[in-house]
Design a protein around this nucleic acid. Structure first.
Lengths: 141, 141
DNA sequence: GTCAAACTCTGGATTAAGTCTAAAGCCGAA
DNA sequence: TTCGGCTTTAGACTTAATCCAGAGTTTGAC
């Protein structure tokens, strides 16, 4: 997909390797908000010789180098998001699926000006149900 | 403290017991946003004969009966909040401390009207540093 | 008061997510 | 080719949380 993922890793100060590229290929271009185990499963199906430790190392490295953000939004779920620009999140209570919500979809009265706090970052976290649509993953618990 | 905590439990459909009252006494009146282990430690210092399983059972029961809310905001921290009315949260990146932010302190353009979603609940999650103050818990890691 | 049924608590075993470690593999520079 | 430094691996370890089966309590009927 990405023209040269390898270059992108180098630009972030990461030495490319087969395993790192395989992880990058999936995790940097998904909007699934996968957990570490989901990344492991997915990438392992393509590159069977891949250990758990490597996946964790790689994900943590990517987070450290700023290619990924780590989110902790729901019940015991640590999840990775390749969208680096600020945005909000919606969590579907039925499926557990997390979706990105564009920054402009919601207006928030500047919390950076909160009395007595130096707010460096914020987001709106919403919960509910997604309406209409193909309703594909309804019972994906 | 609370005039009759016992009654409050009954009103929520919870059979009071020594252990449950001890847990309730602490967790329903704190603004510490304690984790389960913190609750265990705290309550055990008053009532030494208290098992971990009981604390988890009790906390889960309280959540189920609507006396507590369970929050998952930060890195591997499941935390409990007795404030049931809607409010926002601020997380101090230095100390990890979570503080409640009054609902009215921030205005959000009604996310309940988000196109294609049925939003039942939302909050603003902020991160940053707390300013000034007695700076008491600075290195409380 | 006594008894049984139902509920509650306990410690220890178990599970699951994540980290650590020591050894082996790989790769580029001299 | 050989060396040194990264990267990967499998498995041991850690920690949070849940499960379980037995023991202890409470309640209500008699």
């Amino acid at each position: 997909m990405s023209p040269n993922l390898s270059q992108r890793l180098k630009d972030s100060g990461i030495q490319p390797s087969a395993q790192r590229l395989a992880v990058a290929q999936y995790v940097l271009s998904t909007d699934d908000h996968p957990s570490a185990d989901q990344v492991l499963a997915k990438v392992q199906s393509l590159v069977p010789m891949l250990s758990r430790a490597t996946v964790y190392n790689t994900l943590n490295l990517f987070v450290e180098k700023g290619l990924l953000k780590q989110l902790v939004l729901a019940e015991g779920k640590v999840v990775f998001d390749p969208v680096l620009s600020p945005h909000h999140h919606f969590i579907d209570d039925d499926t557990g699926r997390i979706e990105d919500v564009p920054w402009d979809a919601i207006r928030v009265s500047d919390p950076a000006r909160l009395e007595g706090y130096d707010v460096t970052e914020y987001m709106v976290v919403m919960r509910g149900r997604k309406l209409g649509g193909p309703r594909k993953l309804q019972k994906k618990r």
